[in-house]
Amino acid sequence: MVDRSDDGDTLIDEAAAAPVDDWDFSWLAGRASEQRPSWGYARAMGARLARAGIALDIETGNGAVLAGVPRLAATRTVATESWPPSLTRAAARLRPRGVTVIAADAGTSLPFTANTFDLVVSRHPVATCWPEISRVLAPGGTYFSQQVGPASVFELVEYFLGPQPARVRARRHPDRARAAAQAAGLDVVDLRSEWLRTEFHDVGAVVYFLRTVVWMVPGFTVEAYRPRLRDLHQHIRAHGPFTARATRYLIEARKPA
């Protein structure tokens, strides 16, 4: 763990210079921590993949989660990603295992024929296009996803932006996901959510997090927020880790046979 007596500007500048183009949160080891959901998404997703014939992983990121499963779908596994740096890394990681990696913005459309996949999975999608998921699922097929829930880590967001209106705090609510899935013709068979303790042990961890998850504090730059970051450094020195609550929900929906 980083010594919190270190100079705040040194920690800030170190995090500002760290590369963030691969969604590699290993830089935060010992500097931040997040409680994991009890359902164990990667394990549960891997179990479903092992039973699938043709599967699709939407917004695979750098491919690390999919690469970690013991067995892929029996006939074919496909992954999509839209961000070029992650797409390159996902292809390098997944193609040796026989996964087809395709550039696609899954928030608007999926470049596949209807009724193709008996399993579609996605971990932390930016947006879920329920009509497209319903379209590409084969009858009887399943969509299985862990998603970021409402007001996730908003203690940190509101530290920089001030109190957020109720409509903003209500975005990404699991009840809305249920309604959208049902409107697309899917049956929701599982839906659960959890609040998860998140701790930032030094101000550099906050800088790195906000540079990576860019939609949390839109337009965040170190120089624009340096006075506030210095205040946060002093707060952590005086009171210990900055604590927030992340929200996650698990949703499983099935296309009628």
Rank of each mutant, 00 (worst) to 15 (best):
F242P: 03
P174E: 12
V101Y: 05
V214G: 04
P84H: 09
L137E: 04
L210T: 02
C129S: 15
T10A: 14
G140P: 11
D6A: 14
Q234L: 13
P96W: 12
T60D: 10
A170H: 11
A166R: 13
A64S: 13
S82Y: 11
Y225L: 04
T247D: 05
W23E: 12
L56G: 05
H235V: 02
W39D: 11
V189L: 06
G68R: 03
T75I: 12
R95V: 12
R43T: 15
T142R: 04
A55R: 06
L66G: 05
A238I: 01
H201S: 11
F200E: 03
A55W: 01
A151L: 06
P125L: 05
R172E: 02
S86M: 15
P96C: 13
A50I: 06
L196S: 07
V214Q: 13
A253C: 07
R192Q: 15
T243M: 11
R48E: 12
R123M: 09
H233G: 05
L191G: 09
A18G: 07
T198V: 12
Q146K: 05
P150C: 07
H235R: 15
R176G: 10
L250G: 02
T60K: 04
H124F: 15
T88F: 03
P125I: 06
F112R: 07
D9R: 15
E155Y: 03
R178A: 13
E194V: 08
T128N: 08
G46F: 09
M216N: 11
Q35A: 15
L186S: 04
V213C: 12
R171T: 14
G61Y: 06
A42K: 12
F144G: 02
P125S: 02
A92Q: 13
V99I: 10
A55H: 04
R71I: 05
R93D: 08
A180N: 13
A47P: 09
L119T: 03
L94P: 05
M1F: 05
G61W: 07
D175S: 14
P96S: 12
F25R: 04
W39V: 11
A181R: 01
T100D: 14
G46V: 09
A253H: 03
A47Q: 14
R171N: 10
A18R: 07
D105S: 10
I133D: 04
R123T: 10
S193F: 08
K255W: 03
S193L: 02
D57V: 03
W39Y: 14
L94C: 00
A18L: 09
T212F: 10
I251Y: 00
F200W: 08
G63D: 09
A92W: 01
E252H: 08
G68P: 00
